[in-house]
């Protein structure tokens, strides 16, 4: 269905006095190289691995949440044995559960699912066309990922027990940060260029929420 719509868009005749030659109706023009990189960080080849990895972390976190809900009776750990159960039933974990109402692993699972679905949402040029969505994805992956990785390690030291699967998810979180930051960076630099060119807060606001602007489009592909 999406493919149909894309080819329909592609069939439109380009406007004679086109702004930058990027909107000539050629669907592949959405795959423009985004400064400061020499590739497109929003293309599917860049994004799908992030979603797949986040999906793996989602399953691991869900598994640990199932134990915390006692829907399963024991939890697998090939390295630290019983220590995983100590971590998942620790006071720290109980306090988090009292605060949020659901087990912390369930919250983590939802955050990883968020990484995956916001990774999938948006066109292959969302760094320019939907900054808000790119930022939402970035907020889920980067600050949340770093904080959760720190919490996992702290939990290991505070509880005095280690949890193999928690460490795996922490490693995945940090890998996701590394895989995702290029797109966020492109988006931030683009917004900065729009601001420097126009000095118009209202326009910047509209561009952030995905409204088209010729002035913004002119600086979209400019390398600084």
């Amino acid at each position: 269905m999406v493919r149909d719509e894309q080819s329909r868009v592609a069939q439109r005749t380009p406007d004679a006095g086109e702004v930058s030659g990027l909107h000539g109706g050629d669907g592949s023009a959405w795959d423009a190289v985004a400064p400061p990189w020499d590739y497109n960080p929003s293309e599917w080849r860049q994004r799908v691995p992030i979603c797949a990895l986040a999906g793996v972390a989602f399953f691991i976190a869900t598994y640990m949440a199932l134990y915390q809900w006692r829907l399963i009776g024991s939890v697998w750990d090939p390295v630290f044995g019983e220590q995983t159960a100590h971590v998942l039933d620790s006071d720290v974990s109980e306090r988090m559960r009292t605060l949020f109402g659901i087990p912390d692993a369930a919250l983590g699972a939802l955050a990883y699912l968020g990484d995956a679905i916001y990774g999938l949402a948006g066109s292959s040029r969302r760094w320019q066309y939907r900054p808000w969505m790119t930022m939402l994805f970035g907020l889920d992956v980067i600050p949340l990922g770093i904080v959760s990785a720190i919490l996992v390690v702290l939990q290991g030291t505070a509880v005095g027990a280690w949890c193999f699967l928690c460490l795996v998810t922490a490693a995945i979180s940090l890998t996701l940060v590394w895989l995702a930051y290029d797109e966020i960076w492109s988006c931030l630099l683009y917004l900065r260029r729009v601001w420097k060119r126009t000095r118009d807060p209202a326009l910047l606001w509209r561009v952030f929420w995905g409204n088209p602007s010729a002035a913004a489009d002119q600086v979209a592909l400019v390398k600084e």
């Binding site: 406007d15 909107h23 959405w30 969505m133 995905g210 088209p212 602007s213 010729a214």
Partner: peptide, 24 residues
Amino acid sequence: LMFAIIPNNASLPPEGWRNPRPPA
């Protein structure tokens, strides 16, 4: 909440950006 934030046809650019020439 997580899903409802995502607009329809999210894989395409927003409607304004799909046009050959974006308005000023």
